[in-house]
Each structure stands twice: as C-alpha cells, then as structure tokens.
Design a binder for these strands. Structure first.
Lengths: 209, 209
DNA sequence: AATATTAGCTAATTATGTTAGCTTTTAGGC
DNA sequence: GCCTAAAAGCTAACATAATTAGCTAATATT
C-alpha cells in the first residue's frame, strides 16, 4: 500500500559541504544529534546544580555572576539578563531566591542607584568550591572523548556557529515578516497569498539560555 | 577591600586535553558556548515551526514521526517518547493536537491493539514541503561556517559526546546517591537513620530533547 | 522644573513539561 | 479456559520555567 515515494520532502539544506550524495540525511542527523547532546548537557548541569541544592537555571545564574564579575566592574540584573538571553524579571526572581539562600548579595550600585550590584557571597563561593571536585569527575567523563585538537576546534566551531545562528535568526525573521516594501516581486501566482503576515506572526521569541 | 583572591574555585575539569596553562577557563567558555548555541538553535527551530503554525516541540514531534517512520515499521507513542526523551502523556497531548490539525493520523496498530500507529498525513507532508525552501535558506546560513571536514568531524564528535554524556549522567547519579551497600559496615544503631536520602535526591529528571 | 529614559520590581499569564492513576489489551502460568 | 501481571495509552492534576504588562524610583535631557 501507500505510495511511499520515500523522499516526499525537498532538501532542508543546500550547501554542498553539508550534503552527501545529494542527500541531507546526515545534516538532519547532525541537527538531531545537537538536540540530543544539548539535552544531556542540560541534564548534567541540573545534576551539578542539585548537588548544591539549586535548579539548573539557578546554578547558571550564580556562576554567570561569577564570570561577569571577573570581567567587568559590576554586574547588574539587565546585564545578566542579556548575557543569558533571559528576561529581566526572570533574573530578578532567580537572584532574589539566591539572595534568600545567602549565595548572592544585592546592593544598590553606588554610581547609579537605579542599578543593583550582584555579587556572589563568601557562602556562594564556598558552595561552588564544594561542588568542584565532583563536577570535575563528571566533566572529565562527559568531555573525555575530546582530544586537545578537537577541543580547540570545537571551541572555535561553537563560537562561529553562535555567530552564524544569530545571522540565521535575523534572516528567518526577515523571511517571515518582510518589511512589506521591495515591491518588484514579479511572481504572479504567488501574489494571491502575498505578505499578509500569514498564519502566525512568527514571534520568534528567543527563549532560554 | 575584598580579599578577592581571584581564583577561589578549584578546577571543574582535570583532563590535560581540556586545560590551557593549567586553567579551565576555555573549558568553561566551551560549556557556556554550548548553552549559548543551544538557545539559538532552539530559536531557529521555533522559527521554522512558526512558519507552519506550530510550536517548536510540535514541529520536533512531527518531523520525528517522519524520521522514525522511515526507519521502522510503525511508530508508537512510547517509541516516540523514548526517542525524544519526553514522557508518554506529553507525546499524547502533542500528537492529539497534531491530529486535530490534520497533520498526523492515529490508528490502532493492527498487530498490537494497545498500540497507536502514528503517521504523518498527506497534509502533514505538504506542510513540511512548503517549509523546506525557507528552512533551506536559513539552515545554509546557520551552518554556513562549516567546511566539509568540519561537518563530518562535528557529526562524529556529537555522536561520541552523546555517548559520553550518557556515561557522565550515570556517574553523576552514582556519586549523588551511592548504593549505600558495600556492607562492611556493621553499625547496628545506625540502622535507624540509615539511608535517609540526603538533602536532595538529585532526581536528575532529564528533561527535554 | 518638566519630560523622557532606564533599571528593577510585582503580578498575571503562558508554555512546556511531569507524576498518578485509570482503562484496555496482551502475555504468561496454571 | 481462566487469573494475574505487565504494557500502552489516556485523562487529570500539578510543577516549573519562563514571558509580558505595567508600576515605581532614579537618572538624564531639555
């Protein structure tokens, strides 16, 4: 039964570097593997977090304060929100909880009193130090398969992919919601269901980090 | 002020391949970049999904039915749940919606009538085909930086990392909740508050995919 | 001084899941 | 042939992680 014409869907990628024998099969595989890996990566983070009594995102917020603190004079709520691609109010909620737990301190910024200065407390650092030995064992296993060269290359590739993904998102937003203008469009039949703004104004609300 | 001893936290990884000048700085960077990429990768998927009126996870479920259908005789709810690391009931909810939308059909499996046979409908395939051209442009940009060799290597690395992450998760679970056994312990009184199950039984509930 | 902007907060809501427990079907032991 | 156990999927109730809207206070602009 079934007319199973086996390949009813056109290619989802076209760059020759990403095709094998004209098929996007391994590209689809990569896309899927990325989700698979990243899902496990999150699970590992959740495990580290649980070790010191936190949820995954709470741990991320905590450690990010540390990272930013090392690089910049002071870490504000919005700075952190941007850094993690999360909303301001969400960072407020999480940092409030971390403050209640005594892991983070919030004091008004002396230079701009609208701002809040986020810092990891001594107790916060203590918890992170306590976690490290276990974290180290787990990380060693998780990233065990990487050689020095692969590690460097992966680092490099990820940096480039973040960049290109950003561009892809912009292109996607543009394609979804073209500025209406640029009216040469000589496509006759297509004119029917033209711009309109379709079924779903693809809000593209970039969510977590 | 502040005793800022700058590096209060011990290393989070110890394999020499992942250290540079004895520092885990670039390793931390990689871990963070992976989250950054994940967030954008998900956003791209959400954009593709929105294009055909679906949420990101709905699109993933739809396309996964297609992938599994191509590989196996029949796709059941639980098969899909396992594949995507999601719960059965959640797959039920999503596939019901996709069925209402006419993109997926659910019929009882002839061989085992407890099972439901999931299939993408003609309309479902039509939507995917409709999406492909746009998807192709966006994917070309997102994965544009990859050379043929990098593409192959990344594919390979991801497969290995999924595997090692799985092992890391098991180690993590073990470290968090060691089997109590190793029964040299002849403590009689201890029997009272024995296992207890700690502060947080690091449930490690691996979530999405 | 009046106005606009920025930072952060609270409240309400949404999206994305999960666990518990039920029904139906299949499989296994007797 | 039964009776029990296990498996598949469903519904319902709930949990978590996040958003948007709109408020207040501090700062910047005119």
């Amino acid at each position: 039964m079934a007319d199973t014409s086996k390949a009813p869907v056109p290619l989802t990628v076209s760059r020759p570097e990403l095709l094998e024998d004209g098929s996007d099969r391994s590209f689809r595989q990569l896309v899927h593997a990325l989700f698979g890996f990243l899902s496990r990566h999150e699970a590992v983070r959740a495990g580290h977090a649980a070790r010191i009594g936190l949820a995954g995102i709470e741990y991320s917020v905590l450690i990010s304060i540390g990272h930013l603190e090392a690089e910049e004079r002071s870490v504000s709520v919005n700075r952190l929100a941007t850094h993690l691609h999360l909303s301001g109010p969400f960072i407020t909620t999480v940092t409030n909880k971390l403050e209640r737990l005594g892991l983070v301190s919030k004091e008004p910024d002396a230079e701009d009193r609208r701002r809040v200065k986020l810092r990891i407390t001594a107790e916060g650092w203590r918890r992170l130090s306590e976690l490290a030995p276990v974290q180290r064992q787990v990380n060693d296993v998780q990233f065990g398969p990487l050689s020095t060269d692969e590690f460097r290359l992966l680092n490099d590739i990820m940096a480039r992919l973040i960049d290109s993904s950003e561009r892809a998102l912009k292109l996607q937003a543009f394609l979804a919601d073209p500025p209406e203008a640029a009216p040469p469009a000589p496509l006759p039949a297509a004119a029917a269901g033209k711009a309109k703004d379709k079924d779903k104004p693809p809000r593209l609300s970039r969510r977590p980090a």
